[in-house]
Design a protein around this nucleic acid. Structure first.
Lengths: 221, 221
DNA sequence: ACCTGAACACCGTTCAAGT
DNA sequence: ACCTGAACACCGTTCAAGT
């Protein structure tokens, strides 16, 4: 979402001299830019500073520490999540909501990595939570049931997100090695499972059926 | 489970001189010891080497790199997982199996952290997978349905494991801060959810009901 | 007020050298 | 064969100093 020639900090990224003082939004934007283009491992204070034409220490004026920066980047992503306003049963609309969440968190892989690092999906995600709780209520759940159901749905979604990277090209050698080390004669069912093509698309498609199954179980009292 | 005075490397940990040459099992055991006692962040090659009375570089003789060491530590944990041989319906026994997995992975918190880092739960876990696939088959699922169901159950379990740390004492300030930053008037249901006591035990107890709901949905065709 | 330079205490890892 | 010492290229972060 950075524009072509000028960013919110008033400079062309990586070039030229500072015209205006740094601000927090510019730091967060630079962090997202680096994360999107070069991956989370490239998100170091020194790298972001270079992106802004500044030294690493200058960042400490606008951000308490690196963790705070990551939380701010996450919150920035949360703000851009759009809630689908669908029709149909609460169950159908819950599927839509979690699919939207899943897809949104998936567009920039670093987001999942930061979530895995233990950061909570920040305050700006509260719209989403409220929306889901309302749908669960509409489906007939009590406050307590809705809260438990929300967490179950989130755990499932987060677990799925976390395992997508393992199915990416880089992870496939590890999977193959695992396949060869398993004594297949003792584990015929596992052997059959592993022999199925492990396409990432397959895992992606498996998200919705599992989600629907979970919802069926949660909404059936 | 290292014994009291002597370890598998033939020395008292952290003291004395080497009597026998290092071996891979001793390195892995030392890694687990450090992880259990001081947390995953303390698991550095230098720290493990010190534990063994050796320099960091000596470890490279027995372990390719740090990642390989972590995978070996994980595999060590997988080997110790005991499958419960319960009676009752396949569904009941699936609950038992995943509860056993959950509890086993929970006894040493670093395990979840390594899983979050993207490592696959190694070859020695294949007994568990085979066991679950057999139960799903017994419940009437086809190969393909069983594979999808296995993943759904794992995603749910892993998601839950991953969020336990956020509910530990260290994470509670963050949760509280989140609570104050949410505009509660706009989000009444979220406000009610957050005001419930966020005890870790509660999240732990919530694991099984969600698991049962998921199973209900998966097994009902 | 805002930013820099140098330094500190760490990492994983490589490489030549010791015994 | 097995281990060491010194070094490299990094981290996040602190602190005194510049303008």
């Amino acid at each position: 979402m950075p524009s072509t020639t000028t960013d919110s900090d008033g400079t062309s990224p990586g070039t030229g001299k500072r015209r205006v003082p740094l601000n927090r939004a510019a730091v967060v934007a630079a962090g997202r830019r680096v994360a999107r283009d070069e991956g989370l491992s490239a998100v170091t204070l020194r790298r972001i500073a270079a992106e802004l034409g500044v030294t690493a220490m200058a960042l400490y004026r606008h951000v308490g520490d690196k963790r705070e920066l990551l939380v701010a980047m996450l919150d920035d992503v949360a703000e851009q999540l759009e809630l689908p306003d669908g029709h149909g049963s609460p169950s159908d609309r819950l599927v839509l909501a979690f699919r939207a969440l899943h897809d949104h968190l998936t567009t920039e892989p670093w987001v999942t990595e930061v979530l895995k690092a233990g950061e909570l999906f920040g305050p700006r995600a509260s719209r989403f939570v409220e929306h889901v709780l309302a749908l669960l209520e509409e489906a007939g759940l009590t406050d307590e049931q809705a809260a438990d159901a929300y967490w179950a749905l989130w755990w499932y979604t987060f677990g799925h997100l976390s395992y997508l990277p393992a199915l990416r090209p880089e992870g496939l050698p590890a999977r193959h090695e695992l396949m060869t080390r398993v004594r297949m004669n003792d584990h015929p069912r596992l052997a059959r499972m592993l022999s199925r093509p492990p396409r990432q698309a397959a895992a992606r498609d498996a998200f919705v059926p599992g989600l629907q199954a979970l919802l069926r179980g949660l909404l059936a009292d």
